[in-house]
């Protein structure tokens, strides 16, 4: 099966003050259709940067030194910025860890979801708002009217995270990059959100690149797992297989840490 997203030989360097060091080296990653791939690694290990590099939104200090990011037979690193803007949100969307700071505090949730629909689906303002309501319904929010009209700080973390998922799937992207989507939530809500991911993935035929450090999350949803350590991929393969019998030391350490 050809992969939807294929990252090969990707290296990212980061410039701090005067020196340049490698953040990620020689990364290979495949995401197939209808698949949840978990990218696991320690904090500050460059997981988020890898996610951002797919969308070509790395901060200025970071640079892709080599490699290819092939999405639907097109190298995203060679794509013009204008085409990139079309791909962002429409084909590849992203979900952030901190839902409070990922929403603009001065606009209500409904309008921010509608903004995406207006930009990509070309809907009228009125129509986009209606559709935003439907999307909020789709992510299992009960009180759609209130949530759509609320400002980000007025909602609970769980509701906000759902709203962000609704925003990400607004124009039915092929891939959603979810950057630690449940790390800020307590365990019960975490489970619900993950169940929602699973449901959406089968319903909408999404592929999800799940960035996390929590192996519990991985076990719950992921089909495949890629373990990142010291800027390199140390282990990758079927999630069940790896979690049941890790071969790499770092993976073992992670497993041990989770079991505490």
């Amino acid at each position: 099966m050809p992969s939807l997203l294929n990252i090969s030989n990707l290296s990212i360097s980061v410039q701090d003050n005067s020196s340049t060091r490698m953040l990620l080296e020689n990364i290979h990653l495949d995401v197939h259709k209808d698949e949840i791939v978990a990218l696991v690694g320690s904090s500050g290990g460059g997981k988020t940067s890898l996610g951002l590099s797919i969308l070509r939104l790395l901060p200025e200090a970071m640079q892709i030194t080599e490699g290819k990011i092939i999405f639907r037979d097109k190298d995203l690193l060679q794509t013009s910025l204008r085409d990139m803007q079309d791909i962002r949100g429409k084909d590849i969307a992203m979900i952030f860890q901190d839902s409070l700071s990922a929403f603009n505090p001065v606009f209500c949730i409904g309008d921010q979801i509608a903004e995406v629909l207006q930009s990509h689906a070309g809907l009228s303002r009125q129509r986009a708002r209606e559709r935003a309501g439907e999307l909020l319904d789709l992510v299992e929010i009960k009180d759609v009217k209130r949530v759509a009209g609320a400002y980000p700080h007025q909602l609970s973390g769980g509701l906000r995270q759902r709203a962000m998922i609704a925003q990400a799937i607004a124009v039915s992207p092929a891939i959603v990059i979810a950057d630690e989507p449940t790390s800020n939530l307590d365990v019960t809500i975490q489970a619900k959100i993950l169940a929602l991911f699973k449901k959406l993935q089968t319903q909408m035929h999404l592929s999800i690149l799940l960035i996390t450090h929590d192996l519990g999350v991985v076990r719950f949803v992921a089909d495949r797992v890629v373990v990142l350590s010291q800027g390199r991929i140390v282990e990758s393969g079927n999630a069940r297989v790896i979690l049941d019998a890790p071969t790499n030391d770092f993976t073992k350490q992670l497993m041990a840490a989770t079991q505490i």
Partner: peptide, 16 residues
């Protein structure tokens, strides 16, 4: 701010 980055990942145009 992160919401600007979030808006960028959603493909919102610069002027917007």
């Amino acid at each position: 701010r992160e919401y600007v980055l979030a808006a960028k990942t959603m493909g919102i145009s610069d002027m917007r």
